[in-house]
């Protein structure tokens, strides 16, 4: 039934009432008012019923089942809990990747430093050889050292190569975390839509029942700057209350006399 069809009886009774009042038919008019009242109640009842049903549907779509909340018996998790778990997975994966990468870097630095140190040690000796300043026994010693160094270089650089490939592989988290984050974004969007829907329906119920809420005007003044910690600023180019980088910090501090 359309809203218009539902309102039809109300319109009819109103017309009848007007005619009866104009013709001075008071007793009949009183009966019509009673019928009108009944029709109005009926209409409200149907409307509220309809809205309550869709409200219930929306809440069900939220997947937050009140009967399950707080009950450890149910294994089935709400999608909200699931989203939190997914985000925790992102933290874990990124932490693992960061640690693995740092392990490899910490493992590689001494190897490459040792290679550099050894090369720098051999260089003056080698130059003496190039300048033909070497005695035969020194030359024999140098060839042995050079041979050792070449072996070491070949061996150690393969270690560096393997560490670098492990660093490369450690970046595979991006694909996994990207997928997980996309799903959470999708859920947040669905929740937002459901919330907007709920607010609209609550407004509709208020409208047809004529309910007025005593809600104070905006309590939070959003024009005030937010001073608490906020974490990384993701859109510094769109904000004028944040610095864009270290240069801005240095400029601000020096303007304060630092």
């Amino acid at each position: 039934m359309t809203e218009r069809a539902q309102q039809e009886p109300l319109v009819e009774y109103a017309k009848t009432l007007l005619a009866q009042l104009e013709s001075g038919d008071a007793v009949e008019a009183m009966q019509t008012i009673a019928s009108l009242h009944k029709a109005r109640d009926q209409y409200l009842f149907q409307e509220v019923g309809k809205l309550t049903r869709s409200l219930h549907e929306s809440i069900k779509n939220f997947s937050i089942d009140a009967s399950k909340a707080g009950s450890a018996m149910h294994d089935e998790m709400s999608r909200m809990q699931d989203a939190s778990q997914r985000l925790n997975y992102v933290i874990e994966k990124t932490e693992q990747a960061a640690n693995k990468t740092m392990d490899m870097v910490e493992n590689t630095i001494p190897v490459s430093s040792q290679l550099g140190d050894r090369a720098r040690e051999l260089k003056p000796e080698w130059q003496r050889l190039m300048r033909r300043e070497m005695k035969p026994e020194e030359f024999r010693l140098l060839t042995r050292e050079m041979d050792n160094f070449l072996d070491m270089a070949a061996h150690e650089t393969s270690k560096i190569d393997s560490n670098l490939s492990n660093i490369l592989l450690a970046q595979d988290f991006q694909d996994l975390t990207g997928q997980v984050i996309k799903r959470v974004i999708q859920l947040v969007q669905e929740v937002e839509e459901s919330l907007v829907h709920l607010v609209r329906m609550a407004g509709a119920i208020d409208e047809i029942t004529g309910t007025k809420h005593d809600i104070p005007e905006k309590i939070v003044d959003t024009s005030l700057p937010n001073i608490g910690p906020e974490g990384p600023i993701i859109n510094p180019d769109k904000r004028n209350d944040v610095v864009a980088g270290q240069d801005d910090v240095d400029a601000l501090l020096s303007s304060l006399g630092f």
Binding site: P225, I227, D241, V243, V249, L253, L256
Partner: peptide, 10 residues
């Protein structure tokens, strides 16, 4: 990561 001017001043 906190980059608000108010925070740096604080």
């Amino acid at each position: 990561a906190e980059a608000k001017r108010e925070q740096i001043i604080e």
